Simulated assay, not measured.
Amino acid sequence: MIRVGIVDDHAMVRTGLKQFLSEHVDVRVTGEGSNGADALALARKGEVDVLLMDISMPDQSGVDALKAIKARFPALSVLILSGFPEAHYAATLLRQGASGYLNKECDPEEIIRAIRTVSMGRKYISQAVATLLAEGMAGGLERLPHELLSERELQVFLRLAKGETVGHMAEAIFLSVKTVSTYRTRVLEKLKLTSNSDLTYYAMTHGLIQ
């Protein structure tokens, strides 16, 4: 039996994953959480074999949580399930100890394949990630400006690009309006843009939003 912990700040996502995983006799969900602190707590309890974790969470990010978990529990398999495309974080997180990286738009059956693979102490490399790694080994292309953004900057960028206001975003991700505005300024500077409309156009032309 593979014991799985699910960490995602959206209750609906956790519920859907639990329901899906319950259909497989060799997997059992033994814990869940909504933030980085919960992820570390699940690891500390020692009741999970695989931690299925998002990287975009309100307090401690999944990236920081991964670093903390691998520092304390290096043998624990951590499988990242993120809404961000593989190009943004996959290679970096695999280097930092993640056992695999999946996009939330992947086929559900790929999630169960990945869980079974990493539970045996192996890495799970999806086709999309394999292509990225191959391009990187071959020299690849120069990184695009948005690929240099921090996790939080990228989160703010994508929300702004979709038309979300600073005030609504601040409430949604538990930051002050001033802090979100600071992130917006940094994003505009790094991307060499001047307005939210520019952000939307950039995101659409690079396939980051539809």
Rank of each mutant, 00 (worst) to 15 (best):
Asp59Arg: 12
Leu21Thr: 04
Gly167Lys: 11
Pro58Val: 01
Asp8Pro: 14
Arg72Gly: 01
Asp54Trp: 05
Leu76Ile: 05
Asp107Lys: 10
Thr117Pro: 04
Thr165Val: 03
Ser126Ala: 04
Gly121Cys: 13
Leu17His: 14
Thr131Tyr: 15
Arg44Thr: 08
Leu21His: 09
Ala138Trp: 14
Ala68Tyr: 09
Leu149Val: 03
Ser126Phe: 00
Ser150Asp: 10
Phe157Tyr: 13
Phe73Met: 05
Val177Cys: 06
Arg72Ile: 03
Ala11Phe: 11
Ile69Arg: 07
Glu32Asp: 13
Phe174Gly: 07
Met57Phe: 13
Ala37Pro: 12
Gly139Ala: 06
Arg44Phe: 06
Leu133Arg: 15
Tyr183His: 12
Val166Ser: 02
Glu32Tyr: 15
Val118Phe: 02
Ser126His: 00
Thr194Val: 04
Ser150Tyr: 08
Thr92Arg: 15
Ser197Leu: 07
Pro74Lys: 04
Ser77Lys: 06
Asp38Asn: 14
Arg44Lys: 12
Glu164Leu: 04
Leu133His: 15
Glu189Lys: 11
Arg184Trp: 03
Val129Met: 07
Leu40Tyr: 11
Ala37Gln: 15
Asn196Glu: 05
Gly97Ile: 05
Val177Phe: 10
Ala68Ile: 04
Asp9Asn: 10
Glu23Gln: 13
Gln210Ile: 08
Glu47His: 15
Val156Trp: 05
Ser22Asp: 12
